[in-house]
Every structure is written in C-alpha cells, then in structure tokens.
Design a protein around this nucleic acid. Structure first.
Lengths: 239, 239
DNA sequence: ACAAAAGTGTTCTTTCTACACCCATGA
DNA sequence: TCATGGGTGTAGAAAGAACACTTTTGT
C-alpha cells in the first residue's frame, strides 16, 4: 500500500475573535493563522490544525489544536464542514473543519506563540490549500448564525453592557444598529440576565448583563454532545 | 501498522422522501435503510453508505451510494455532519454523512433493491452504530431548514399545485397549515412561477406552479460547488 | 343543487423600524 | 452646564394568524 493509496483525516479550526482598534469606526473580526514550515505551501499562512489521532474524537482534536495555537479554551465551538475534494492537497486529505469563538479579553492576555499571527478577516493574505474558501464559509456562517442564535456572547466576557454586545453585532454585520431597538430585542429574547452592577467611567453608568445559561435548547438540535456554548469542560486537559 | 491503528473514512446518506398512505391523515416522511450482511451489527438496519474511495470526492461518494441504494438521483443533496467519536464503531471510522431528498413519484417508479426497505421515519427500528442519532439530526435539520429555505420542492415533481406543496410542509412540520396564508406566503416569496396549466380531476382545477431556478442564491452560502438543488449533473455517471 | 377544494378579502395581533425624548454622569 | 452615551416612549410599516367569503369544478 503506497502512501498515495490512503486517505488521511485532518482537523482544522477557524478561530474567531474581536479586536477594537483605538481610532477605528467599529471593531473587526480577527483570526489566528499558522505559518507553514513544511513542504506543501511552505511559508504560506494556513488554518491551525493537525492530523486526527486514532484515539481522539473529532471534538477533542479541534479543542486540542485550538489550545496548541492560542493557549485558550473556546467559548463556542462547532463543527463547520468536512472538506474532501480529491485535489485539495497533493496527498488525499479529508479535513474536518471546526469554527470557534474566543473572547477578546482572553486573547489580549495570552502570550503569543511561535509562527502564529492574528489577522483581520477583512484583509487576509492568500492561504494554503483551500483555506481561503473555508474561511469565507466560516465567516458566512458566523454572520448568518448571529442573527438567530446568541453566539455573539461568546466573544464577550462574563459580564458586559448592552453597548458592548451591540458592538459585537455591528462588527459582524458590518453596519450600525439602533441602540433602542437593539436593547428591546435582546431584552425580550430572554437570553440576558441583568445584574446589579454597572460599568462606570464614561458617562451615565451602563448596567452589566450576563448570559442566561438556562436557555441552551432549541438551537443546535439533537447534537449537543459535550460541546457547549459555555466554556468547554476539560476536553483539552487530557494531558 | 495493525488495522486498529488506521482511521477509515466512510460516507453515508440519509435519503428522505414522502409517502402518502391512502387513508392517512397526512403524508409521512420515509427513508430507505440497508440490512447489514456483515459482522458489526449483522442483520440490523443501517444507513446506505460505503467506504470513501481514494480517487473520489465526498459529494461524489454520497451520490454514488444514493444511486446504488435507490437507483435515483437526488433533487437535493447536502452534507449533514461528520461523525467521528472513537467508540462509534469497533474499528475507528469517521463517517461523513449527507442527507438527500428524492421525489415521491420517482421512488414509486424505481424497482426495489436487494436488502433495501423503506421505513416511516416516525416508526423506525433500532439502527446499527450511531445511526439513530444521525437520523434524528437529519430530521431536525429537515424541519428547521424547510422553514427558511425552499427545499420542500425537492420532494415534488417539476410542476405541482399549492395544495401539494402545502401537504409537504404539513408532513414535515406535523401540523395543518392555513391554505389561504400559505398561498400568500409562498406567492410573495418569489420562489414559484405560475404556469398556465391546471391539475384537474377532483373539484375546482388548481393551477400548477413550478420552481423558480433563478433564485438559487442567499441560502447555502459560498459552498455551492457542484451540488445543486436541481438534479445533479452527472457525478454518478463516472462509470 | 350541493359538496368540496381553489382562491380572495378583511381584521386583528405581533413584530420591526425610525426617531423623538428624558436621565445620569464626567469634565 | 453641557456634551454624551444610557435608557424609555411612541407612531407608522410590515409581517403573521384567524376566518369569513366567493369561485369553480365533479357528481
């Protein structure tokens, strides 16, 4: 059996976060990429990922590559798509691709890794393999899913103001939203719980909200294995 | 390298169609299953599928297994999910699962295959592997997607009445819909083109409509490779 | 003529949207 | 006190649900 006669399985992850530039109009969606040091597409940027271990589930592999690349645990992790065109790589590779959200404040605290850099998704370099297409699909999925789901909270810390949450939506949608209407929509959705704490510093203090964990249902369907929109249990801590 | 040290890739397909029993209240969603003749779960019913050939794309493999099982070409075919838990099979198998819709009239004309039987999805036997979970997910996806997409047409022939289309929605949702409101909704969606032909036979003749192929966009996102909601090109005819 | 399905109209409710307006704090 | 973002009110538009009503066929 020559090496061209086997199909290998890889797992990659599109990791998304938010970054607000000081003078910018609104925040931008950013993602980490890994510079390839081996032959196919050497020197090009690619999605973080690796080969699937025989004793490792798909979700666990995604969490592992995410931890190896960013040192973070995702606040949201979901399978995106399986890419398996015959000519997408010199050898036959089927890539199970996940996408994940990490909080902006956690990204700032993490220490940078070797050969890893964060890019604005609106200004990406040409990527290795078919990773351009994959990233495009992930961003499309983020935009469409943020409309009917509450994954936007995955980009924020535990407590946040409505203005911060609105800023996330505006960054993803790329347009301004009416603060008054936005408030009502998200308040009536039942996903937010108001705290008695306030964010002070600028003008009138803004009430801090937190995420309602009771309402997890009716979104991802029957596939709710171990993957939770809340911080992952301990899949990446299997030493 | 022993056989336990490799991960194999399989492709399975949840094939869905509609069947209207003579005396029944409304039509039911049906799917073909294959009786296993080999060791793991021998005798149990399972999803149609097979091993991924090294020179075969994922989409092509799904089309192939669909043709082998039913002799039909799908009117809709989409990747569902990749299942890869370590313990889902005695050996390590990652299954890329697709789901497909075939038209009821085509199913009736097709000649039955060996070891293949059609089941009502509301009354399924226990399936092999984790196929129960997979089918449950596919049905959930069908129900949620029929609400904001127009895949329901994939279960009907080229021309159909609004009552027939409504019957599809009622079977999938499992509840009655107001004929008047249903008509307006689907007429205003711009997805249907009225023809000048009518279906006669019962009472007042009903106008026949057909599917508007111009409006394919804004649904499945950037992933519109060769897979089309319209009948597939010739992926399964690669002799 | 009558039953039954096709197709139209009307009303009420809910939701979205635009925008005016008041409130509370830092400077 | 004034600028600014936090927060509330409200009126019109759009969309959805319920249901009465008219039209056209087979029997």
């Amino acid at each position: 059996m020559s090496s061209e006669d086997i199909t290998r399985v890889a797992v990659s992850t599109v990791i998304l976060s938010l970054k607000r530039e000081p003078g910018d109009e609104h925040a931008s969606v950013v993602m980490p990429l890994v510079r390839r040091v081996r032959d196919p597409f050497e020197g090009r940027w690619a999605l973080p990922g690796g080969w699937l271990d025989v004793h490792e589930g798909l979700d666990a592999a995604a969490s592992r590559t995410l931890a190896e690349t960013t040192g973070l645990s995702p606040s949201y992790l979901e399978q995106l798509y399986a890419f398996g065109a015959v000519d997408r790589s010199p050898t036959r590779v089927v890539s199970i691709v996940y996408w994940a959200l990490v909080r902006a404040d956690e990204v700032e605290q993490a220490h940078p890794q070797e050969n890893v850099a964060w890019f604005d998704t609106a200004d990406l370099p040409p990527l290795a393999f078919d990773h351009d297409e994959i990233v495009g699909y992930a961003l499309w999925r983020l935009r469409s899913k943020v409309g009917y789901s509450r994954i936007a909270h995955g980009l924020l810390p535990g407590e946040f103001t409505l203005a911060e949450l609105r800023e996330v939506y505006e960054a993803i949608f790329g347009r301004r939203l009416d603060p008054a209407n936005f408030r009502r929509q998200v308040e009536n959705s039942g996903n937010l719980i108001p705290t008695d704490r306030f964010r002070t510093g600028s003008h009138r203090p803004a009430r801090l909200y937190r995420y309602n964990r009771e309402v997890e249902l009716a979104d991802r369907g029957p596939l709710t294995h171990g993957l939770a929109p809340a911080p992952l249990p301990s899949e990446s801590s299997r030493s």
